[in-house]
């Protein structure tokens, strides 16, 4: 059923664009941008983690998006490490302090790794980090779960690791 609805939505969007109609609403603009690929079509289902068919710890739509980025394989691996680490904040038991610390360690290592791989004198690493957060935490359900993690970590102190933190 979901597939049918998606096909219908895409068909309507394409038909809308081909018809030459002016875009007059935000909804139409979203459909048009997602249809022509200028904005990635992200998963917005009600689940916390979303689909991960290859079971690599990264949501499939984000996996596909990372593959399109114009970076080296080493850099893409750093981006994937961030995507995986951020996903674990959604699934970790928020009452298990040891587990929370483990997730936080993964997160900080991913951050240090991506900065290490994008030492280009710009803020590219920070932009990729915020983009990862924006695309992963992209529904209210996921946001609520993410907030539980951040609240559980409030008051913590974390030292940035040294050396190679990439996986």
């Amino acid at each position: 059923m979901k597939k049918i609805l998606t096909v219908l939505l895409i068909s309507f969007s394409v038909a809308f664009l081909l018809s030459g109609c002016r875009v007059t609403t935000i909804e139409q603009a979203i459909m048009a941008a997602e249809s022509n690929g200028s904005i990635p079509r992200l998963n917005h289902d009600n689940t916390i983690t979303g689909p991960d068919k290859d079971n690599n710890g990264i949501r499939d739509d984000i996996d596909a998006y990372i593959a399109t980025l114009p970076y080296t394989e080493v850099q893409k691996k750093a981006i994937q490490q961030n995507a995986r680490a951020l996903n674990t904040t959604l699934t970790v038991d928020k009452t298990d302090k040891t587990a929370l610390t483990d997730v936080s360690t993964k997160l900080v290592r991913a951050v240090v790794c991506i900065h290490d791989k994008f030492q280009d004198g710009t803020t590219t690493a920070s932009k990729l980090i915020s983009e990862n957060e924006k695309m992963t935490i992209n529904t209210k359900n996921r946001f609520i779960e993410y907030e539980k993690y951040n609240s559980a970590r409030s008051g913590s102190v974390t030292r940035l690791p040294d050396g190679d933190t990439c996986e």
């Binding site: 935000i26 909804e27 992200l42 915020s130 983009e131 957060e133 992209n138 529904t139 996921r142």
Partner: peptide, 21 residues
Amino acid sequence: DKSGQMGKRFEYFWEFLGSSE
């Protein structure tokens, strides 16, 4: 956006907040 599509898409929240470009 009366359709509610934007409000359901939290990627726009992070952008409006300034956390993301």
